[in-house]
Amino acid sequence: MIGWKDIPPGMVILEAGSASKIKTGSWRAAYRPKWIEENCIQCLLCWLFCPDNSVKVKDGKRGEFDYDYCKGCGICALECPGKKGNKAIVMEEEVK
């Protein structure tokens, strides 16, 4: 940790993308999302709605959650249409 003499003016952070160093997923409290692939229709609404960029997409396909940054807000689970009324995302209790 830096001392006060090394604080930059206005605490402006000059290193691009440095937020990725802080694994905010550790703040997740009670619930984490779980992806049920067989119910997924690849609409990518979860990716669109996630406020923390924690739904990974590769080659246009839905990938796993990034639990290093997911805060467990449940927005993805709420927005997920799933298949024939069966959600492809459910919130599960966090196992510590």
Binding site: M11, V12, I13, L14, A16, G17, S18, A19
Partner: peptide, 8 residues
């Protein structure tokens, strides 16, 4: 060219 963050 030099991205930065204000107000962390």
């Amino acid at each position: 060219e030099n991205p930065k963050s204000y107000g962390p």
